[in-house]
Nucleic acid binder design. Structure first.
Lengths: 209, 209
DNA sequence: GCAAAATCTTGAACGCCGTTCATCGCGAGG
DNA sequence: CCTCGCGATGAACGGCGTTCAAGATTTTGC
């Protein structure tokens, strides 16, 4: 016999599954409460016993996307570390390329991470922010190897800058409005950017004072 | 005596004015057809004699934003050119900082340039794309001075990468979800990024082959 | 085991959105 | 001045997320 709470938990998973599929296939704008209700076989209003509102649902899908992204970056970093333990710059490039690859393979789910805006008065819950911060690990570790003498705060700032820069290249390269930049070209852009920054760091670490 | 066509043109300007104000004050989500009609004193349906739909209205507001952004970047580039004619890297930094400043002063209008998605089947009209491309002038000119020997296509690619990277830093730095990064810190991030890339270029121009 | 209470489910209804369209009134051409 | 066509009008349409009164179902207390 299944208790009510257990069944509700199961339905909540189904709901998030359905929402994830809808976003993956038709983007954030293609996520409709009525369609989800039809898909998981419940009444329209029942959705609001599973999640507070659509915002929460989007955040829960985002949480899954972040987890998969985190895994992908981790694998890339690990593989690069095994291949060339001394090449911190190579690890940074590997992570950046993995980021790009993930975005290209999951375009709509990835876009949703940045497109989504909370409803009028609502704030992003703390757990969602914490999950985003987790991603920085994959950049900070190679960066610490690259700049062992810089202080932690400088490295954090540079890590954020590097992440933002790579994100920008990917975001504009895969922009839906324009024709997407071909994979080879985008990878080349990213590699160039990270290499140039690393070369700049090697040439004069005083730049990040 | 005012002809009908002239009055319609005047009303169209009023409509775009009102839309621009609405977006500037409350963001893209705060743009409502009914409110615009009330504001410019016409019936709801009359809006659709002035523009095809809301998408076109947003694009026309975007066109104005791009024109002002273009002007701001032009001024910054010009000022840097007068101040230090030989310092191409300095001009790139000046343009990047001007971009950041514009984004900070016009956050919602600037965001709208990237947030906006056309309705289901609609494509971005060609004139809107052309306007965006115009912006690259301000990056390509200093870049040509910095890399006189690189071929044009390599420079174009690098210019797009640089623009995207700076855009990413600004976009994430001013992200609405999080607390905005303080101005000084953001400027420092941007300057560091551009300096590092330029230093990387100086260290080994082979990197962009 | 059964009645009572608490809880969950339901889908119609609400308010809002962009867009359309039958209708009407007014400015322009003869 | 008259008519006729075109632009203005706002109610209506379909769709959205969300709410809620009412009915169904499970849990509780004895």
């Amino acid at each position: 016999m299944t208790t009510t709470a257990a069944r509700r938990d199961r339905q909540r998973e189904q709901l998030i599954d359905a929402a994830e599929r809808a976003i993956a296939e038709r983007g954030l704008a293609g996520l409709k409460a009525r369609e989800l209700a039809r898909e998981i076989g419940c009444a329209l209003g029942a959705i609001y016993n599973l999640v507070r509102d659509m915002d929460e649902l989007v955040l829960r899908v985002g949480s899954r996307t972040l987890a998969r992204l985190d895994e992908a970056l981790g694998h890339a970093s690990q593989a690069a570390l095994v291949k060339a333990p001394e090449d911190a710059a190579g690890r940074l490039i590997a992570v950046a390329l993995a980021y790009s690859t993930f975005a290209r393979k999951n375009p709509r789910l990835w876009r949703t991470l940045f497109e989504h805006r909370m409803a009028e008065g609502a704030e992003v819950p703390e757990w969602a922010i914490a999950e985003q911060m987790q991603l920085f690990r994959h950049i900070m570790a190679p960066l610490a190897a690259l700049l062992p003498d810089a202080d932690e705060q400088q490295r954090l700032l540079l890590g954020r800058t590097l992440f933002s820069a790579v994100h920008g290249v990917v975001a504009i390269g895969l922009e839906e409005k324009l024709v997407a930049v071909p994979r080879r070209e985008l990878d080349h852009q990213i590699e160039t950017l990270v290499r140039l920054v690393c070369a700049g760091l090697a040439a004069d670490t005083g730049l990040i004072r």
